[in-house]
Simulated scan of single mutants.
Amino acid sequence: MDQEQRQAILDHWHTLAESMPSNDMTNSLITEGILSPNDLQEINAKETENKKNTTILTKILASVSPDCYAIFIDALRQIPNKNSRLADMIESRFKKQASADYRSDASKSKNLSSAHKRQTVDQLDKLPKKCSRSMTQEHRKMLIDKRILLTQKCQDQILPIYEYLLGTNVITSYHKQTIESKSTAFEKVCTLLDILPERGDRAFDEFCKALTNFKITVENFNTGVDFEDTRKDTDVTQQGSDSGLIHANQQDEDDISQYFFDVAEHLEEDWINLKLKLDNAGKIEIKNIQDKYKKNYDQAYEFLEQWLIIYGENATKKRLIGALKAIQRKDIADKIK
């Protein structure tokens, strides 16, 4: 484990200690040989979940295995009902650093060397999105705007839909396992819709094809879609190394969800006050979120996701910053400017 990876864990130590389910983590880490049976005995002897997780994290940092960090991240991604949030929270550090490095260098010179350009592309390729191209804002918005209809219409066909997406390499076997871990068809569809935006723009095209193949029609979504034209339009906007990277950075800046990790981690119980400011129409139920998740971080993140889904284009960075300042959390607002 290198120093950056160690620091990424240390930066989120409190949230990890509070939110990790120790049993799930120890099972995965023992299977992969990171923890020993003696380690498990020591962990289980701790009185509280927080103390157990603190012991796990301490042993992770002390491990000499070169694969320890990757195995730890994979274990986090396998936690039921967490939707990879904890892993994404940790790895967001590397995404921000790569983007910041590129913008800093670009501001100094518009004529980057070819070697430097390749290095920047390599950095971005290592981000946790696991796709070669991020989904366009237009397609992300369509998934959000049609989420309710998609959830209603896909429930009966969710099995063949995700099997089709697995066969076309849009999702992985891990994603399939995550979807199948949900108890209801409704939850399975919602999980798939959460996964798609991070699987690239091809994921949108293949999802539309899956809907068409299984006779599912959602008005103004997969009706009359020319997938080749969509791909050509996207390619035109991303010609050239410089223009492609700048375009991707602009998309990142427009995607308010990139701030949700930091906001949720620092809000704690103030997420309820934030909800009262942002959800004026009262469309989001506090009790439903509290019943679903027990930790403040998960509750805050769930609220922010629901706010984005329900309010769509009205869920803006400007509104989020204004609401944070209104509840006396300027410290968080300053982090997302």
Rank of each mutant, 00 (worst) to 15 (best):
L308I: 11
T237D: 09
Q5V: 03
Y162A: 07
S28Y: 15
N81R: 10
L76D: 08
I286T: 09
R118T: 13
I327K: 00
C131H: 06
C208S: 05
D122R: 13
R202V: 13
K117Y: 06
I161N: 01
L57E: 07
K108H: 14
E42Y: 11
I195E: 00
S114D: 10
T58P: 05
K275W: 10
Y174C: 14
A264P: 05
S63G: 00
R202P: 06
R103L: 15
K176S: 08
L127A: 10
E18S: 11
K283S: 09
F221V: 03
W307R: 07
N220P: 01
I286G: 03
Q177W: 07
K287F: 04
S181E: 11
N249V: 08
N249L: 11
L308A: 04
I286K: 04
I60Y: 00
M89R: 07
K110F: 01
E91R: 03
N280E: 14
C154Q: 01
P37M: 02
F260D: 05
F227C: 01
S22I: 02
I90G: 06
Q7I: 15
L278N: 00
H12R: 14
D205I: 13
A8P: 04
F204K: 02
E228R: 06
R231I: 15
L57I: 15
T230S: 14
Q157H: 04
L165D: 08
T151K: 04
L274R: 00
I161V: 10
D262N: 09
I286L: 08
I158P: 01
R329A: 05
R140H: 07
Q155Y: 00
L159C: 07
D226K: 05
C68A: 11
Q328Y: 12
Y174I: 15
R319T: 09
I246C: 09
S92E: 12
Q5F: 00
Y102I: 05
P66L: 12
I43H: 01
A70D: 13
D270W: 03
S84A: 09
D242V: 12
H175P: 09
T223K: 14
L57F: 09
E268Y: 00
C68N: 07
W307V: 08
S107F: 06
K96H: 13
K95Y: 15
E228K: 06
N44K: 08
D122E: 10
I9F: 00
D229K: 12
L150D: 02
A106M: 12
A62H: 05
N280D: 14
A210M: 11
L35H: 06
E4D: 10
S113K: 09
E228L: 08
D101Y: 12
K126P: 12
A62I: 05
F221A: 00
L324W: 06
A315Y: 05
R103V: 14
D67I: 14
A8H: 02
D242K: 15
L86M: 10
M142Q: 15
G167E: 02
E269P: 15
L193D: 04
S132Y: 13
I34A: 05
A248K: 06
L193E: 03
T120L: 13
K96T: 11
W307M: 05
E253S: 07
T212E: 07
S104H: 13
F94D: 08
T54I: 11
D125N: 05
A106P: 10
D122A: 12
K292E: 07
I321L: 04
K287T: 02
Q290I: 08
V236C: 12
